[in-house]
Design a binder for these strands. Sequence first.
RNA 1: GGCGCUAUCGUCUAGGGGUUAGGACGGAAGAUUCUCAAUCUUCAAACCCGGGUUCGAUUCCCGGUAGCGCUACCA
Length: 539
Amino acid sequence: MAGPRVRFAPSPTGFLHVGSARTFIFNWLYARHNHGTMILRLDDTDVERNTQQSVDSIFEGLKWLGLNWDEEYKQSDRLDLHRKTAWAIFEKGLAYRDFTPAHAGDAEKSGAQGAWLFNPGARELSRAESDRRAASGEPFALRFRVPRHGEGYARTAWGQPPSAVRFAEGKLCVHFNDAVYGDQMKAADDIEDFALLRSDGMPTYHLASCADDVDLRISHVIRGQDHLTNTFKHVLIFEAAGAVSPQFAHLPLLIAPDGTKLSKRRHGPVVSVTTYRDAGFLPEAFINFLCLLGWSPKNDRENMSLQELQDAFSLEGINRSNAVVNFKESATSEPAAPPSGDVIPTAREASGRHLLFPSPLFASEETFDPKALWLNAEHIRALPVESLSERLLPIVRGEGWDVSPEKMLRITQLIRERIKLLRDVLTTADFFFVKQLPPYDAAELIPQKGDSAMALKVLTRAREVLANVEFRHDPLDHTLRAAAQELGLKAGQMFQPIRVAVCGRKNAPPLFETLEVLGKETTLERVASAIAKLQQGVN
RNA sequence: GGCGCUAUCGUCUAGGGGUUAGGACGGAAGAUUCUCAAUCUUCAAACCCGGGUUCGAUUCCCGGUAGCGCUACCA
């Protein structure tokens, strides 16, 4: 295959978060748009922090997105390649052993003066001396010998015309071109002698990443902008390894409304992909949303299918400034006690389950970026009813409610314009599923410009009339309107008490369709108990 | 501290030397309707600051400021 080869290379140190998901999606889109190859590579060289649990949750997130990849690798399987690459660089004289002990994580920031470049003495160590100390078992890190001004770099591998290393403005500079950020140049004297191999022999991220990119023939590296300045090091490694650098494209970062980077610690579950899945986002809507952060098709299109995204995607559409994922932070801060009942979906109350713990995972709708919700609603409406219904069914059943697929389909038609998240089915259509309506205030039964006597009159009449009508839309319509006229009421005044009696609330799908699905028996039962409720209130 | 990147409505963005600075979400108002939703109409809402270049800068250049990133034997 002649197309580009791109990779998504997460390090398994946590769940899949939205920023990583977007990086994955952009890589995928680029690969598919250009008939290339999508590679998944687990960058797991940090044995301390990697966990299997994290690997699992990353796969879980990717599986939900539903975007496939063509090849899969794990860096920990390829350590030999990394080491071989490192030592080849060493043999060229472009890396050296540093016997200086690693500083134990302290912040010796070298304060006022410039950045740290290398440890004194390590660079100049003769090869013989270096070999001797290594042979004696003394631990060392292998460091890259970043070309320095006045060190005769021309004698090394550097300096040939296509080199990334060149003189500019009297300084030795490293250069590369980024598809998003354009030409990038940095003085070599601002790049420290970074490590290739740790003293335990494990490759560092920089080395492993580049060695694998070479070996896997990666043509385009599309990743977060947090790697932009690392790229100077990478370009150096590629060249030292005798390889041509891939084309780089760095993505603007996704940040939280408070301007800081997204972190689970600070911002809670809204940064995890599975939260969106569990809240009832459609993967295609979530993908659509993420694509609009930091990329634009430049034609005002927003609501797009996967295929449309794939057709429209290009690196030129990526912009350079960070984008805010506009979720509500207050709703997600985890220790904040569940304040009042309104956080708890009524469906849960009704079913009497999970009552005590409104999991932050299912934080209210207001938690999510409004645009994400809007897009999700758009995608929900764009779905064929049958397929929407199929997705809703397991959610309803998961709540312990039994519905037949046939009934679910009819309900779906009534709610599809009324839900933003799949899970909203539980709060929007609950009255279709429960046998017993959750308690509601009898005052709700009272129509506009009416009193409880009017409500009683309406419901009493409705009970008589409904007992003798066929439960289909038109007969219901005619009968109830006629009843209203007969009672000298406006249609709305007639319908509202019935709606509340039957749904337990004022806001619900259209009345006749609702009654049709509910059926005569349930309807009459609920009207009867509403009448009882009213009579109770009167006494 | 050093180095780098960025800066258009609240948010996501389009645009570009001369525009009524466009779209979307969200907000407000109205229409429609048996409520809600959907739909439609309308409204409010932005070029970070200061210098240059220019007949003219929001756009180009420089400086400032702010935000973010990197500055690890993390990735």
